[in-house]
């Protein structure tokens, strides 16, 4: 009987490994952020450069682009581990897959969701977002991108065995993003209009907690199926 190392050791090692891999692939690291910045250019070009129009569109557009950036970066989440067989090793090792998935998603969020959140005020500036909207934008994205990464990890796990899973991943995950988008953009808009936003932020936090508990379970189940088939 081989003694398995403790959970803390597992988490620490996985965290270190994921960060190392994440920072070695510099391209993957920057792409979602560049995408985020690129798309924002299309809004004034495609709709109108007038400040009044951008002001109305701003909160929703920034939220939608953050959502898409998260979604597009997700298909690499388990891909390389699946291809080189390390995912299989993790599964046969007998370690709880739930925690491994959670750590992987956390690192994914650290290198995509968190930079997007921190960049959001710059985009707000470009969309002439009123000053009251900045903090709500940052807080709602902080809570929301976490939930987006977690929910998206289910889709990434479901499609990992497919060669061209990217578009399919978006198709199956988008409907599940609806509630997060509604409450996220509503928080920013309400703040601009001078209403209370604690309700929206609390709901976003609730989504995050629910996703923290359930999403890694579903993703772990999907990974087991993908690996065994």
């Amino acid at each position: 009987m081989i003694e398995l190392p403790g959970l803390g050791h597992l988490l620490g090692q996985t965290l270190r490994r994921e960060f190392t891999i994440g920072f070695r692939n510099r391209g993957d690291l920057a792409n979602p952020i560049i995408f985020f910045l690129c798309i924002i250019v299309f809004v004034p070009l495609g709709v109108s450069p007038q400040a009044e129009v951008l002001q109305i569109l701003g909160p929703g557009i920034i939220w939608i682009i953050a959502l898409l950036a998260t979604l597009l970066s997700l298909d690499r989440l388990f891909q390389s581990d699946f291809e080189d067989g390390s995912l299989e090793q993790v599964i046969v090792s007998g370690q709880p897959l739930y925690w491994v998935v959670l750590v992987k998603v956390f690192v994914h969020w650290m290198i995509t969701g968190l930079p997007l959140t921190l960049l959001a005020p710059v985009l707000g500036l470009m969309m002439s977002l009123p000053a009251e909207g900045y903090w709500p934008l940052i807080i709602s994205l902080f809570l929301g991108t976490g939930a987006l990464s977690l929910i998206g990890s289910i889709g990434a796990a479901l499609t990992v065995a497919l060669r061209r899973g990217g578009l399919l991943l978006s198709l199956i995950i988008m409907p599940l993003y609806v509630p997060v988008l509604i409450f996220g953009s509503a928080a920013v808009r309400n703040a601009i209009d001078g209403f209370a936003i604690t309700g929206q932020l609390a709901t976003l936090a609730a989504f995050l907690v629910l996703a923290l508990v359930l999403a890694p379970l579903a993703a772990a189940g999907a990974l087991r199926i993908s690996v065994s088939s």
Binding site: I154, L158, I172, P175, L176, A218, G221, A222, I225, S226, S229
Partner: peptide, 10 residues
């Protein structure tokens, strides 16, 4: 199996 998981998540 993957569809079953997706249906349950849905």
């Amino acid at each position: 199996k993957t569809c079953a998981i997706l249906a349950l998540v849905g």
